[in-house]
Write a protein that binds this DNA or RNA. Structure first.
Lengths: 233, 233
DNA sequence: TCGCATAGTATGGTCTGACCACACCCTGAA
DNA sequence: TTCAGGGTGTGGTCAGACCATACTATGCGA
């Protein structure tokens, strides 16, 4: 049955157990790699395997040096691991862009129609997205910067629903295709008319949210996403 | 900007590039770790970091020995990485069960209402789920086995929509809470009445699918999931 | 007493080289 | 022709070393 359990899984399971029991929580430091190795009776190399996994999964952040901010510190960045997974499987042709776009529409329209769990936070989101829209109006903005703010805009709106799983998946879907998006529009000349339409759509979406027309916001989001991806093929 | 790019990222990016260009695809073998180390001018330890990441992300499968089925072979298991990420973040309290259940309902009801991309496959799914329902009727079945078949049942139904992202997320959500599910119902005595209701619900859901009542299937699925999790608190 | 440069210490990151168990393969004997 | 045996290359694991870094403690000088 279990002929060869990997050595790093010993550490991984122990840490997962500690997380579950809240012996470890966000902000805490993990014991040093050498200490973990000795505690579990395995080599530091195997401990590093576990640490590396926690790192790419967005559970911890590692840094060199000593002191309270060094070493492996628990963070919570659920989108990191999911983004990486989606990105790699997109490269490996295990999934395709159509499916990602379809999923984005599903998640974003759901989040838009969802009753916000926290009305105060929802109002903050509406205010903050208004700022993002203004920043995207800057004609000096590079395309990379525009895409970055654009992503933030969408993730922020999705966060209103108060579901971090949906929010992380949203962010991951957006991240996983960011290269694709950047490569999609070949020239800056072709980009100019596109960005004008995007700005207009963003403002309409924001207006629908601000006036609490959630159905309409969802519909506009779907059109917005579909339109943009029709431009990139 | 880039003071310390990790050594393993060199290999990771190279492999991702090869996947994108289809120089590598499912079934291919990766070069040996020693060969990759020499090619990129880094140590085997760093190469192993990259290999390990691809492994946990479900991009490759590794095994010892020699020959065409040994070493690191490209597979495509998108749910592996996402499952692991969700599972760890669930342990780290970065996400909670409510959010996972909410997401499951979102994905499953969407998939249920979606027009199948492939009618032939949809019919196969309906036939195969019928078999699973029969197997779940076995009173000798252990709870672990029941949950396993139950998960297969739900993932299979979701796969009808023909969106592997949604399917992977479904499977990952299901996997990430499997421990939670197993621990939820304390005794086998309490489990018996629960499993009877689950069987009945599964049959109703299957009937709705088989008779193409997709709206109703979605509604039954939502009730089914909500009911089960109301039992586990 | 205070301020600050310096040595000390612990961290993760990387490398080297070694040994193991395993699975295929190839050769040669029956 | 068959098949038992060793050969070879694979990932898995280990041990030990060195590095750059970042905090900490020391102690000197003002």
């Amino acid at each position: 049955m279990n002929p060869a359990p990997r050595a790093y899984q010993i550490v991984l399971q122990a840490i997962e157990e500690d997380l579950r029991k809240e012996k470890l929580s966000v902000g805490d430091q993990l014991p040093g790699e050498r200490a973990l190795a000795e505690r579990h009776g395995i080599s530091r190399a195997s401990v590093r395997d576990a640490i590396r996994i926690l790192d790419v999964m967005g559970i911890i952040r590692t840094s060199t040096g000593s002191g309270p901010n060094s070493g492996a510190v628990i963070i919570s960045n659920p989108s990191a691991g999911i983004s990486q997974a989606l990105r790699l499987h997109l490269a490996a042709k295990g999934i395709n862009v159509r499916e990602i776009v379809e999923s984005r529409i599903l998640l974003e329209t759901w989040a838009a129609q969802m009753n916000p769990r926290d009305p105060v936070y929802a109002q903050q989101v509406i205010d903050r997205t208004a700022v993002l829209i203004m920043r995207m109006d800057d004609p000096q903005l590079s395309r990379e910067a525009f895409h970055r703010i654009d992503a933030e805009f969408h993730v922020l709106l999705a966060s209103m629903a108060g579901n971090s799983v949906v929010e992380s998946m949203m962010e991951s879907l957006r991240n996983s295709i960011s290269d694709y998006v950047s490569d999609s529009v070949p020239s800056d000349e072709a980009w100019q008319p596109v960005v004008r339409v995007l700005r207009r759509q963003h403002k309409a979406i924001h207006h629908a949210f601000a006036t609490n027309q959630r159905e309409r916001a969802a519909q506009l989001l779907e059109e917005h996403i579909n339109w943009f991806y029709s431009q990139t093929r």
